[in-house]
Write a protein that binds this DNA or RNA. Structure first.
Length: 426
RNA sequence: GUGGGUGUAGCUCAGCUGGUAGAGCACUGGGUUGUGGUCUCAGGUGUCGCGGGUUCGAGCCCCGUCACUCACCCCA
C-alpha cells in the first residue's frame, strides 16, 4: 500500500499469501512433493536458522549467497554466536543427517525431502524475494547415476503433473576433484587474458567457473574461445555423466546439454541441472540441483557422495500463470445457510454445526444482513447449495434447499437435511 | 550495491499549457414487505505517498524523501 493510513507493511522483499491465491500455493507444494513421497523420500524439517559457519563452509565463501545475501543474527549469550537465516536447505539437511547419524543406520542413500522458506538479502524483483519457498529433495550417501536420474525424473514428473509444458531441463557435469582443478586452471589462464571489469576479474580468481554464467553480453562475447569443461572431464566423470543421460533418455525425459551451466553454489560436483522457464521475468530457473560429493567432508562429516535439488514454489506459481494454467482448487464451502430472523438463525446455526461435524463444509451469514445481501454472500462463497429458512418454513418443520447452480429450490424436512445434503454432495 | 518506471477512491486507472478531483468495477440500500448470479435506480468515499519550495493558486512545476515495481548483479 502506498497510503500512509497503513501503519505497517510486509518487510521489503516479502509478501503475504492471501486466500485468493493460497489454494494454488498449497496445491503446488503438494504436487511438487507427491512424486518424492512415492519414491521413498522421508519428510524432514530443520531450523530456519543455523550457525552462520554452516553456510559459509557449506555453500561456499566465494558465493554471493554467503558474501552478501545472508540475513544474520547474533545471540544474546556471553559468547555471542552468529546465526543466519537459511539461504538454502541442503547444508541444513546434511547437518541434521550427520547429527542424528542417519547415515549410520545402515541403508544408504538416506532419502529426504523438505518444504519450507529460505531467505536471501537481495534486491527484490519479479520471481525473486527475500523470503521464498522451496520444496527440495536430497539423496545422501550414494554414488550412483541412477540416483541423479531418479531425482531429475521426479522433478520432471512433478512439473508435468501441474500441467507445465514450457520448461526445459539443462544438464551439465562439473567434473570431480580429479579433473575439475585442471580445467579450473585452464579457464583461469584464459580469463586472465580478457578485458573484464574489476569485480568479474576478482570472481575469475576465486571461482572462475561462475564467470561462464555471466549474462552480460560484454562478458559473453569474450567467452567464445574459452576452454570447455566437457573437454577436461576424466574418464570416470564422462562415463558417469553418460549413464545419467542414458537413463533420462530411456525414461523419456528430454534435456539439453549446457556446457556453461555452472550454478552458484560451490559444493556442486559432476551432475548439475536446472529447470528453466521463460515466464519468470528476468529469472529463469524454476528449480535446480546437482551432485555434491564433497559437501559432507566440508562441514566435518565423513565422505558421503550425495545429490539433490530444490524447486521454487513461488516461481512455479509464476510459471503456471505464464502458461495460463489454473489449478482446480476445490471450493471451500459446499453449503451456505441464510436464516431469516432470530429463531431461524438458531436453528440453522445448529444445522451448520451438525453439517460440519459430519464432514460437510458449511458456512452461514453473519452480522444481520438483509436477505438480498445474504443470498449474495451465499453466491460468493462458491457453495453449491443454500439453505434458506424463515418462520413459515420452520412452522412446517422444513427448510428451503436451493441449488445455487440451477436456481431450483425445494423444501426439505429439517431432520432429513444433513443426510439429504450428504447424498447430494457425493 | 547500480540504473529505469510508478505512487490519485477498497481495486484498475483517467485527470489537457497549473484554476481547488473523476470513471469503471466493488460496496450499501431500493425496484422485489422471503431469495444470489442478469437488469435498473439511488448513495458514500480521497491528507492526490510524505516533507519542503515556486505561485494569487500545485494532483500537475522544482528539490528532497519513502514505498512499490522492473532490470543489472545473483539465483529457487
Amino acid at each position: 500500500m502506498s497510503s500512509s493510513s497503513q501503519a505497517f507493511q510486509a518487510p521489503r522483499g516479502t509478501y503475504d499469501i492471501l486466500p485468493a491465491t493460497s489454494g494454488t500455493v498449497l496445491a503446488v507444494r503438494e504436487a511438487l512433493a507427491a512424486p518424492l513421497r512415492r519414491a521413498g523420500y522421508g519428510y524432514i524439517e530443520t531450523p530456519v536458522f543455523e550457525d552462520v559457519n554452516l553456510f559459509s563452509r557449506g555453500v561456499g565463501e566465494s558465493t554471493d549467497i554467503v558474501t552478501k545475501e545472508m540475513f544474520t543474527l547474533t545471540t544474546r549469550s556471553e559468547e555471542s554466536q552468529q546465526l543466519a537465516l537459511r539461504p538454502e536447505a541442503t547444508a541444513s539437511v546434511l547437518r541434521a543427517t550427520l547429527e542424528a547419524n542417519l547415515h549410520r543406520a545402515g541403508n544408504l542413500p538416506v532419502k529426504l525431502w523438505y518444504s519450507g522458506s529460505q531467505y536471501r538479502y537481495e534486491r527484490p524483483q519479479k520471481g525473486r524475494y527475500r523470503q521464498f519457498w522451496q520444496v527440495g529433495a536430497e539423496a545422501i550417501g550414494a554414488e550412483d547415476p541412477a540416483l541423479d536420474a531418479e531425482l531429475i525424473i521426479l522433478a520432471d514428473d512433478a512439473y508435468r503433473s501441474l500441467g507445465l509444458r514450457n520448461f526445459r531441463i539443462l544438464l551439465n557435469s562439473l567434473g570431480d576433484k580429479q579433473c575439475r582443478p585442471v580445467y579450473r586452471q585452464a579457464l583461469q589462464d584464459y580469463l586472465r587474458g580478457l578485458d573484464l571489469d574489476e569485480e568479474t576479474r576478482r570472481r575469475a580468481e576465486i571461482n572462475p567457473l561462475r564467470v561462464l554464467d555471466d549474462k552480460r553480453a560484454s562478458v559473453q562475447d569474450q567467452l567464445g574461445g574459452a576452454p570447455m569443461l566437457v573437454d577436461f572431464l576424466c574418464e570416470e566423470c564422462k562415463a558417469y555423466h553418460e549413464q545419467v543421460r542414458e537413463l533420462l533418455t530411456a525414461a523419456g525425459v528430454a534435456f539439453e546439454d549446457d556446457p556453461k551451466l555452472v550454478r552458484g553454489l560451490d559444493y556442486y560436483t559432476r551432475t548439475t541441472f536446472e529447470f528453466v522457464h521463460d515466464g519468470l521475468g528476468s529469472q529463469s530457473a524454476v528449480g535446480g540441483g546437482g551432485r555434491y560429493d564433497g559437501l559432507s567432508e566440508m562441514i566435518g562429516g565423513p565422505e558421503l557422495p550425495s545429490v539433490g535439488w530444490a524447486l521454487g514454489v513461488d516461481r512455479t506459481v509464476l510459471a503456471l500463470e505464464a502458461e495460463g494454467i489454473t489449478l482446480d482448487v476445490p471450493a471451500v464451502t459446499d453449503v451456505f445457510a441464510v436464516p431469516l430472523g432470530e429463531q431461524a438463525k438458531r436453528v440453522l446455526f445448529g444445522a451448520v454445526t451438525q453439517l460440519r461435524r459430519d464432514g460437510v463444509s458449511a458456512d452461514l451469514v453473519f452480522g444481520g444482513k438483509g436477505i438480498k445481501a445474504a443470498m449474495k454472500a451465499a453466491d460468493r462463497s462458491g457453495a453449491r447449495y443454500a439453505i434458506v429458512a424463515g418462520e413459515r418454513d420452520l412452522a412446517d418443520g422444513v427448510v428451503q434447499l436451493k441449488d445455487l447452480g440451477s436456481g431450483d429450490q425445494t423444501p426439505v424436512a429439517l431432520d432429513a437435511l444433513v443426510t439429504t445434503l450428504k447424498e447430494k454432495l457425493q
